[in-house]
């Protein structure tokens, strides 16, 4: 579903060059739920922005959902969904209007978009909010609306950028259920970034760890834990231990 080779991005900032991503190889199979982990500034969002056509790679190539990123970005856009860190709904727009509009932007007829929007609002516990202004939603509701907008066109591949940042524990676990359902019920491939290791552990089949613009490890959460298991210590390592060992830094930088 995703195949990237040597993906790199360099930024020119006030005379100095910053290599945000330095040659990432990625393979994600259809139906996988993959977590993309890394400290702040490691290159997670830059990689995601390249894979979603928002940023042109300075080097490397990738096929995303069967389309070449460089030669057919519009083809990629038609086949993917992307839920960014920010809020996708306009604050002066009504919830239902925004969702229907998003469907229409992806080419659904107005009738189909309306039906789909109604169904999604039900599925994501947003029923009855269609006529409310997006500004009046709670943080968790807003996030679920973002997800609804990301999947209204039933993409085969969904990118989520830090989907649960800033949510309370209930909303977070509720969101996880919805993300699992995307994969289990709709058969979507899900690629999400996070810097909550419990989230990656609870949710993801496979985890990729990026640091300093390079992939430093990948595997199932269990495989990664086994890699850093210390026979001298009786307690089983957590993903936090894996992360600290591999990147030498703590993850939850408050500057997130």
């Amino acid at each position: 579903m995703i195949k990237a080779r040597g993906l790199a991005r360099r930024f020119q900032l006030k005379g100095s060059t910053v290599d945000a991503v330095r040659g990432v190889d990625l393979d994600v199979d259809a139906g996988e739920l993959v977590g993309f982990l890394g400290p702040n500034g490691a290159g997670k969002t830059t990689t995601l922005r390249m894979l979603t056509t928002l940023l042109r790679p300075t080097e490397g190539e990738a096929t995303v959902a069967g389309r070449d990123l460089r030669t057919d970005p519009a083809g990629v856009r038609r086949r993917i969904g992307y839920v960014a860190q920010g809020t996708g709904a306009g604050m002066d727009q009504r919830v239902g209007d925004e969702l229907v509009h998003q469907g229409e932007l992806y080419g659904l007829t107005s009738t189909k978009a309306r039906a789909k929007a109604g169904w999604l609002l039900d599925q994501l516990d947003l029923a009855g909010l269609a006529d409310r202004d997006a500004a009046s939603l709670s943080g968790g509701q807003r996030r679920r609306l973002d997800i609804a907008m990301g999947i209204v066109h039933e993409p085969a591949l969904l990118f989520l950028d830090e989907p649960s940042t800033g949510m309370d524990p209930q909303s977070r676990s509720n969101l996880w259920d919805h993300i699992r359902a995307l994969r289990d019920d709709l058969g979507a491939t899900v690629f999400l970034t996070t810097h909550y290791l419990d989230e990656a552990d609870a949710l993801c089949d496979r985890v990729l760890i990026i640091d300093n613009g390079r992939l430093v490890a990948q595997g199932t959460p269990d495989e990664l834990k086994n890699q850093v298991a210390d026979p001298a210590r009786p307690d089983r390592p957590t993903l936090d231990d894996v992360f600290l060992t591999l990147t030498g830094r703590a993850l939850r930088d408050p500057a997130a």
């Binding site: 979603t52 056509t53 928002l54 519009a74 856009r77 038609r78 993917i80 992307y82 960014a84 860190q85 920010g86 809020t87 996708g88 709904a89 306009g90 998003q102 932007l105 992806y106 080419g107 907008m149």
Partner: peptide, 10 residues
């Protein structure tokens, strides 16, 4: 992020 969301659509 509204503009970015629309920029990812076709």
């Amino acid at each position: 992020g509204v503009v970015e969301r629309m920029r990812v659509t076709p």
